[in-house]
Design a protein around this nucleic acid. Sequence first.
DNA 1: GCGTTTTACGTAAACGTTTACGTAATTCCC
DNA 2: GGGAATTACGTAAACGTTTACGTAAAACGC
Lengths: 338, 338
Amino acid sequence: MNPTIKDVAKHANVSIATVSRIVNGLPGYSEETKKKVQQSIEALGYQPNAIARGLINKRTQTIGVLFPDVSGMLSSEVLEGVENAAHDGGFSVIVCNTTSSGKRTVKYLRLLQEKRVDGIIFASEDVKEEYYKIFQEMKVPVVLVSTASSKYDLPFVRVNDFDGAFQATEYLIQKGHKVIGMIGGSDEDPIAGVPRMQGFQKALENNGLSFTNSHIKKNEGYRFQNGKESLPLLLKKLPDMTALFAASDEMAIGAMSAAHELGIRVPEELSIIGYDNLKIAEMCYPALTTVSQPLKDMGQTSGEMLVSLIIGEQQEAKSRYMPFTIVERQSVSNFRDK
Amino acid sequence: MNPTIKDVAKHANVSIATVSRIVNGLPGYSEETKKKVQQSIEALGYQPNAIARGLINKRTQTIGVLFPDVSGMLSSEVLEGVENAAHDGGFSVIVCNTTSSGKRTVKYLRLLQEKRVDGIIFASEDVKEEYYKIFQEMKVPVVLVSTASSKYDLPFVRVNDFDGAFQATEYLIQKGHKVIGMIGGSDEDPIAGVPRMQGFQKALENNGLSFTNSHIKKNEGYRFQNGKESLPLLLKKLPDMTALFAASDEMAIGAMSAAHELGIRVPEELSIIGYDNLKIAEMCYPALTTVSQPLKDMGQTSGEMLVSLIIGEQQEAKSRYMPFTIVERQSVSNFRDK
DNA sequence: GCGTTTTACGTAAACGTTTACGTAATTCCC
DNA sequence: GGGAATTACGTAAACGTTTACGTAAAACGC
């Protein structure tokens, strides 16, 4: 259907080897034949077949990216970075939406294996043994983004969640707050759950502030609804709370929404700091002060890391902790005794 | 490296043809050899090579999706739907972030052509002649989502923007509003720009309300900042405006933010209706009343349409207008004379 | 001007499948 | 029980490339 290298060769009266060499910029032909062949390519509209290339080169110039939730705002930004880096490195990216399901994840990994992708980016989830085994079978580089693995030695790109939570809490303390609550994740979540709660606790303790179980409302998810439902519950246990650290922006905004409904003014009566710095953080009112994860950058960096592992620039990738910053907007105020 | 069909054949003492038949569920072997071969497959951990398959079948089981902005909230939701449909149909999806650049778009199309994708989904942008030529060269089905083309005959999946805008405006009118402004897109945008402004105008005229150029503030983009900057300008020209239709949720929320800063209460003093029903629409405060586009559904539908075109279930796809609804939240109130 | 190196190609194998075709053995029909 | 139809395979070509190897001609060195 499409013209092949053979058609070009015939049209230009040379061998397919010569055409191949010219197409790939290898040496071994005169300037004259090069022109002739290029004209034939132009005339026939020849496009090399990446499939055939892949078969012989054992390189598909394609990577796979697995997200628990492609349409999540966190994933989308990371994806943009990954795609950008991949494209710059000459790779295409296949997206996989695992919906946090182990079965689906395995199915996708098998698919990526059959498709012979050259590498994998695994985002925002814990690496189960099952997954790791497939990684090993596949013998392609893998880099984790926005997650890490304690059990397995896989390079990651992420921010230090403990530090982020610690700093966020310190920030509230510096603003004069004494009674600070947290809307957190789950004890079962080693990525965004535990470390953020530990960072929070540590900051309180370091500053001689009280910390009890009542200071944290845990949640299974990190969504708007989780935050919205958590605020009233947290306020019940911690009525004189003046500041709140939420383990995600969505939860922070959910809490903000609940506060509005309860007639609690933000930040005058309740200061709120989030975590992530999603696009919505600057769109809500009051604009959300939050711990900024450089999501697009993280995607970009993990993408670059992966391609450099694939093309063999480096043998072992060095994991990277990305810098976070606290971006100050309007949801946190100084605490003043009334 | 990985075991091939040959290894399996040798291990099971049969020919590669037999292995192939068994793997693909074709007839032509005894129950006995089937078991034997399956054991060999298991023992060696054989995975068929999709690249080699693609070469001979001329099918890669892969589609390409082009977005102007992958990380946009609109794109992400559409992408989720597309990915879901594709996966159900046995296809993988390669994402491409065109950043609305013609050059990049062409580069991506060429890449998808070389990679021999089986079909293309083209989202949210106008189809330029250049693109259409490549579509034709590629000889693969294309479906448009969240866009359409007047010049070229390509199947699309979208909502009727004129109607959506018309209904949104009617809704405000039913609420008793007489002076209604709009924050719109650009006259150069035939997709989301012109029809939404026309729908707005038509609704006003149908109801005997005044419409002038001052009723619409046009914008190059549809982002938060566009909305935020537009509100003051619009208010200057239309000081007694009591309701506002924004051509996107982001702009609506931008306007809401500006209103907060100007001390204008929403919805008591200014009602706002958006367009899209992004996830943020229910997260802002007050929650945004908006025209809901079934984004995920649109993605899903376009994905299904594309696979059915690829596998030849249908020859010609019928374009589909998806139903929109107005989801009522808290940003619109009844107008009461003061 | 003769041997040696270099240049400019062409030939053919290889990548891992699918599948048309061939063939021997089995089953079937009467 | 003998010919026809069926079953259960195997052989080899094909898909569109890349690339190792071979070779004739040209260029070079002295």
